[in-house]
């Protein structure tokens, strides 16, 4: 049987949405699904090394703020763990990288590749899709 597939598109830079998208991704990969995560727009900024080391995340409200206060594994840590345990890949958006003049080295070491929409659509074909 073919492995069920999930595609997650992260757009928002809000911690709550990043966390929800990465949580679903990690549980899906632990449950035997093939997961492809595409990170673009403001979400990509949250994966920059400087943003993560300063914990400069936008929050939508009190749930997000509490996540930062308590000892919660944050979105990028969930993906790191999921990569160790299952079939999960993370892709950065080439358009956003070009537009912002960011390099792959500016991002944490979690990205399998920087690709465009056409390439991602190929990976996402036939999968469930979640957009955050």
């Amino acid at each position: 049987m073919e492995q069920p597939k999930l595609s997650v598109i992260l757009l928002s830079g809000e911690l709550e949405k990043l966390q929800a998208g990465c949580l679903v991704s990690s549980v899906a990969s632990m449950s035997g699904m093939e997961v492809n995560v595409f990170v673009t727009m403001e979400a990509l900024k949250a994966f920059r090394k400087d943003v993560i080391s300063a914990r400069e995340f936008k929050t939508a409200g009190e749930v997000g703020r509490e996540m930062l206060n308590k000892n919660v594994d944050l979105f990028y840590q969930l993906l790191e763990n999921a990569k160790d345990m299952g079939n999960l890949k993370v892709y950065g958006c080439a358009m956003a990288m070009d537009l912002m003049e960011w390099k792959k080295e500016d991002l944490i070491d979690i990205f399998d590749d920087v690709i465009g929409v056409t390439a991602f659509l190929g990976k996402a074909a036939g999968s469930q899709v979640i957009v955050m």
């Binding site: 549980v27 632990m30 000892n71 594994d73 969930l78 160790d84 345990m85």
Partner: peptide, 17 residues
């Protein structure tokens, strides 16, 4: 204990793997 979702599941999955 003290870890939030999906932390406990993740720990279990690691061990089982």
């Amino acid at each position: 204990r003290g870890s939030y979702c999906p932390g406990p599941l993740m720990e279990l999955v690691k061990a089982i793997k």
